[in-house]
Amino acid sequence: MANRRDPHSGLHSEHGARRGEHTGRAANPIVKVRDQAWLEFEKPDLRRAEVFAHAFGFTTSLRTADELHLRGTDPGAPCVLIRRGTRSRFLGPAFQAADPKDVLRLAEATGATAAPLPEPLGGVGVDLEDPSALRVRVVSGTDLLPALPSQEPLTWNVARGAARTNAMQRPPRVPAKVRRLGHVVLQTTRYRRTLDWYLEHLGMIVSDFLYYPGQRDRGPVMSFIRCDQGSMPTDHHTLAITLGPSDRYVHSAYQVGDLDALAAGGEHLLDLGYQRSWGIGRHIQGSQIFDYWRDPDGFLVEHFSDGDLFDHTLEPGWAPMTASGLAQWGPPATKDFLGVKPGRESLRELKAVFTALREDNEFDLNRLRGLMKVATT
């Protein structure tokens, strides 16, 4: 047993770039966004979406016949905007600019038009399009929702430190209160062009690159990207982009108070009959404790806690992309999480593979072989 090899050996990405590899940042970006503002969706059944959202830990900040706004307990904008539509689809992310002048600068540089946002959001915004044809909204000056009561982390007795005496831990099975939106993960057939677009237009910087095993010389296929606020630490990633056979939403993540809130909230979701996709575990890139769920419309959403924070001085790490390298501990990544569980979603992705291989993009036959290898390593 003493000679047993650590399966995560070599998967941590503290190792930096080689000469000539991507630097992970743009030399002269147009603006530098400071955070993600919200995500926008269309769904046909707002009532069903709201019931799940409350069980997941959101609070409704706006409800009309055709629109639903969901917020966390932290002050700021809503986390999620859902509009009534004929089918379920992801419309795109919104990012928070530091100043309305940045919105105008982006509009001028791209030929887009800046315009006031509707009530009750307030502020000004500009709609752009990334190389995957996804609408990306950049906003500033939006109205701030006040803070709500949140779940405070429990007091732990740890080695050599007893902070709690004559008191017991009894976290209730209740929704894990969402504090804020953490990140969104997107898949694209034009990974390198899309990555560079976000770095050049929004001033984001890469925390970690992943490459397919045996294909590092062809460049990375996934990047975890953070906002650049100089010496102020920010989330390890606010956006992650991965190469794949289709342009689509992968998942979004929402911070909760601590491990107990996450775990007890998961038991609450199970009690209500909702589907856990994968968890509980701790990631490698970003270090978050995670728990993934499927909402009733099939979207993958994540509770997370205890993520890494980096300032602008940290250079990108590089590591191979493998299924076993997705977590430091926890159950193996599930077929549902990896997108290979038999069903409509996997069938749709399989059809996308054949389409992508016939088109002019970055997802070629060698990349397909690399992606298939990921699931078995």
Rank of each mutant, 00 (worst) to 15 (best):
T188N: 08
G92N: 06
L91V: 14
G279A: 04
L91A: 12
L181W: 03
A319L: 09
D228K: 02
Y198N: 04
A263V: 13
I30S: 05
D260G: 01
G286C: 05
H303S: 01
Q151A: 09
D364V: 09
G72M: 01
N157S: 12
R192T: 13
L347K: 13
R218P: 05
R218E: 13
Q96C: 06
T142W: 13
D45E: 15
P75L: 09
L262E: 01
F41A: 01
L357F: 08
S252Y: 01
A115L: 15
V221L: 08
Y198Q: 04
S150Q: 09
Q187A: 09
Q255Y: 03
D306G: 06
D45K: 13
R226M: 08
I284S: 05
L195Q: 08
A49Y: 03
D127P: 02
T355K: 14
A253M: 05
S277T: 08
G370Y: 05
R84F: 09
M204L: 14
S346F: 05
G76L: 07
D6Q: 11
Q328Y: 11
E119K: 10
G279S: 04
T322G: 03
V374M: 08
R294G: 02
V138E: 03
F209Q: 02
D130T: 10
R83E: 10
L202W: 07
L39R: 00
E345S: 13
H268P: 03
P100M: 10
G273V: 11
D143M: 13
A163I: 12
L70F: 03
R5K: 15
P320S: 09
M232C: 12
A55K: 03
D311V: 12
H312I: 08
W156D: 13
R216D: 13
S277P: 00
G281E: 04
A167S: 10
S13Y: 05
E200L: 08
R164D: 07
P171Y: 07
I205T: 11
R248M: 08
R48Q: 14
V103I: 11
P120R: 06
T242C: 06
T142G: 13
A240V: 05
T86M: 14
G125D: 02
A109S: 15
A109E: 12
R83D: 04
P316Y: 06
H303C: 01
F52V: 07
M1Q: 14
G279M: 02
E129C: 09
